[in-house]
Design a protein around this nucleic acid. Structure first.
Length: 109
DNA sequence: AAAGTGACTGTTA
DNA sequence: TTAACAGCCACTT
């Protein structure tokens, strides 16, 4: 089954590059995927990922505020994402936010 | 083919 | 400081 490289594939490639113990924002992923300003597309791409079986570290992508963003439909999985991140060494503050100054992924050029 | 949907973000008040 | 609004595009139906 041949499949062309789609926008989503490119997004997934980037997400796979996020190292353990770091997080990236949707906007950041968008930029690295040549989709600057289209963070929503990134969110949609990750929404399509099967959290149970995919090898994509989807849990390392958070919103610009350093918080976990999930659809109301996925309500409850936020706990899973947080759990996964904490097991990677990332901590949350009292407001359930991540300190991006400390954990934000800074890809090298 | 057109309209709807969506894990977002930056600006404005 | 937080809250609300509009803009952005790819994918699905």
């Amino acid at each position: 089954m041949s499949s062309k490289s789609t926008t989503y594939d490119r997004i997934y490639e980037i997400v796979r590059q996020i190292p353990k113990g770091k997080v990236a924002t949707y906007g950041q992923i968008a930029e690295l995927s040549n989709l600057a300003g289209k963070a929503r597309v990134v969110g949609y791409a990750l929404y399509r990922v099967d959290m149970k079986t995919s090898d994509i570290p989807w849990q390392r992508v958070v919103n610009a505020k350093g918080e976990i963003s999930l659809s109301p439909l996925r309500f409850g999985t936020d706990y899973l994402q947080r759990s996964l991140l904490e097991s990677e060494g990332i901590s949350f503050n009292d407001a359930s936010k991540i300190d991006l100054r400390k954990y934000l992924w800074q890809p090298k050029l």
